[in-house]
């Protein structure tokens, strides 16, 4: 069964098309990765799925029912973990979760049990009576998740749940995502961290300018770019670098520079032998090469190749 199906979903803000004829099927039990750079349309899509925004066109089906018509059914089966924290600072962790779970009609002992379960899930049981104002960033994020899962939704959508937190909380969150999945939840996961997505997602869609430009398992995605090689060259300094000149070398598709570690990244046609020319050009313009490395394609390479941009630009 499809937990979520999008058919030609479109959202226009005036003349601007934020989500463009998007179609997608997510099956039960998947952890589905949603990748896209800033402004790609991820949040807009999620807002439509959670009926915060009305689609300009297309259809959203949750558990095989029209989500725009049967909103109550759709909402009962959805849990949203928003990108920015949405919790009450002046309520305890326990009260926060009970409040949001209560919105789904849970009351009394049922409610209490579910809340305790959710807090345990994110490792905040011992903080149930504390106020979030005294929490660390990672603890707040975990509470943010607990608030979305206590009502046991079939589909959980997490928007960047690990942004800006310590590695320990991050591991905790990744583990709990897996546990949620094991307990039967389908999960949509958006993140800027490729490693995370590679690690936990069973299938991935890459979104750009409101469109899905690639979709599949990570192996499938990586396989699509056998024709591209990914070269990294570390230089002593980037001062004398002339990107235009490099770009004119045959076979080069995408060039990008990482300032912080003096690295030049080149995606080039695998069929064209141009490494010698590239290195010669760099040396001729007086640059000192520290290291050269050819990488096996990973999700980042896929993203870069497909969109011509770094994910975190």
């Amino acid at each position: 069964m499809n937990v979520l199906e999008l058919r030609g979903l479109t959202k226009k803000f005036g003349d601007f098309i934020a989500v463009d004829n998007m179609s997608l099927q997510i099956r039960e039990g998947e952890i589905f990765g949603f990748l896209g750079s800033n402004g790609a349309g991820k949040s807009t899509t999620i807002n439509m799925i959670s009926s915060l925004l009305r689609p300009s066109g297309g259809e959203i089906r949750i558990l095989d029912r029209d989500a725009t018509k049967q909103t109550r059914f759709a909402k009962m089966n959805l849990g949203i973990v928003p990108q920015d924290l949405a919790i009450y600072e002046d309520m305890t962790a326990f009260e926060n979760v009970s409040f949001f779970a209560g919105l789904y009609g849970l009351r009394g002992n049922d409610l209490k049990e579910r809340v305790q379960e959710a807090l345990e899930f994110v490792g905040l049981s011992d903080k149930a009576k504390s106020f979030p104002k005294n929490f660390s960033g990672g603890m707040k994020r975990r509470l943010n998740i607990a608030c979305a899962i206590a009502h046991k939704p079939k589909l959980i959508i997490m928007d960047e749940p690990t942004v800006g937190i310590d590695p320990q909380s991050r591991n905790y969150i990744l583990t709990s995502v897996r546990k949620l999945n094991d307990s039967g939840c389908t999960i949509i996961y958006t993140s800027h961290y490729m490693e995370e997505v590679e690690e936990i997602c069973s299938r991935i869609a890459i979104v750009d300018h409101g469109k899905i430009i690639a979709e599949g398992t990570k192996e499938q995605l990586k396989a699509t770019i056998t024709d591209v090689k990914d070269i990294r060259i570390e230089l002593k300094s980037l001062d004398a670098l002339d990107l235009e000149q490099l770009k004119s070398i045959p076979g080069i598709r995408v060039l990008s520079v990482q300032q912080d570690d003096n690295m030049v990244r080149i995606q080039s046609d695998a069929a064209v032998d141009n490494l010698n020319r590239i290195l010669k050009q760099l040396i001729d313009s007086g640059m000192e090469i520290r290291a050269v490395e050819e990488q096996a394609p990973n999700l980042e390479t896929v993203f870069l190749t497909l969109t011509g941009r770094n994910l975190r630009d």
């Binding site: 915060l52 909402k75 949203i80 919790i87 949001f100 979305a148």
Partner: peptide
């Protein structure tokens, strides 16, 4: 402002 309003709106309320 603290976005809880939108969380409420994603619930059946």
């Amino acid at each position: 402002e603290n976005r809880t309003y939108f969380r409420i709106l994603t619930s059946p309320i």
